[in-house]
């Protein structure tokens, strides 16, 4: 670990190079491919992902197709070849599950009410029906960008909260609810690594 170096040695050189060097030393090639693809929201070529993860292209390809089989990664076929990105619903399920576990039905309903109210306030304030309309109206440097960011956030939170509320209907005895079990609220998604499979199942039920 870095702590074992003396102060001077440890800080010598370039901070960006040090960050990459230490990341590589502390992780496996699989860890890095997974971390990189988990934050990839647009389809990318294997070579791009390999560069970002500091692994070889064959290594990236091997792990990406394995992750695609588990449903964590989305494979997109284009004329230029196969592209990869994270599977959005897989990651949303972690949050949905955490909210379902730690908040009561009433708390979720209240949050949904507040978020909806915030959206209608934005619509009224700017005289637009959606956030894209507002973004189109703004120039770089305008004051409204803060509200665009918030608007996106409210929409995302609303979708997640509505899905979490919906999940209650598929858990009739409330065995997983906040009322039955209280856990540390600072640990969003902490259990997700172990419960990926189970979360995936919940997702399918909710959608049915």
């Amino acid at each position: 670990m870095t702590e074992s170096h003396t102060t001077d040695e440890r800080w010598e050189g370039d901070v960006n190079e040090a960050a990459i060097r230490e990341w590589k030393a502390d992780t496996t090639t699989f860890d890095r491919v997974r971390d990189v693809i988990d934050v990839t929201t647009e389809p990318q070529a294997v070579s791009t992902i390999a560069d970002r993860a500091h692994v070889s292209e064959p290594t990236a390809r091997k792990y990406l197709s394995a992750l695609a089989e588990t449903g964590r990664v989305k494979e997109v076929t284009t004329n230029a070849g196969t592209r990869y990105m994270r599977a959005p619903q897989m990651l949303a399920m972690r949050r949905i599950s955490a909210i379902h576990r730690e908040h009561t039905k009433r708390e979720i309903r209240d949050a949904i009410h507040d978020l909806k109210e915030e959206l209608s306030d934005f619509r009224a304030e700017y005289g637009v029906t959606n956030v894209d309309e507002l973004a189109t109206k703004l120039d770089r440097g305008d004051d409204g960008w803060q509200d665009v960011t918030r608007w996106h956030q409210v929409e995302q939170n609303l979708e997640i909260a509505q899905a979490a509320l919906f999940l209650y209907d598929f858990d009739p005895d409330d065995s997983q609810s906040a009322a039955a079990r209280h856990t540390d609220s600072s640990t969003v998604g902490e259990d997700s690594a172990q419960t990926q499979g189970a979360l995936g199942d919940d997702s399918e039920q909710s959608a049915a």
């Binding site: 971390d35 988990d38 934050v39 929201t41 994270r86 990651l91 972690r94 949050r95 973004a135 770089r140 440097g141 305008d142 960008w145 803060q146 665009v148 960011t149 996106h152 956030q153 929409e155 995302q156 969003v188 998604g189």
Partner: peptide, 16 residues
């Protein structure tokens, strides 16, 4: 301070 499109928070990145 933000003056342009950045999207919503990425909770997965923040979790990392």
């Amino acid at each position: 301070d933000i003056e342009g499109e950045v999207g919503p928070l990425d909770e997965t990145a923040l979790e990392q």
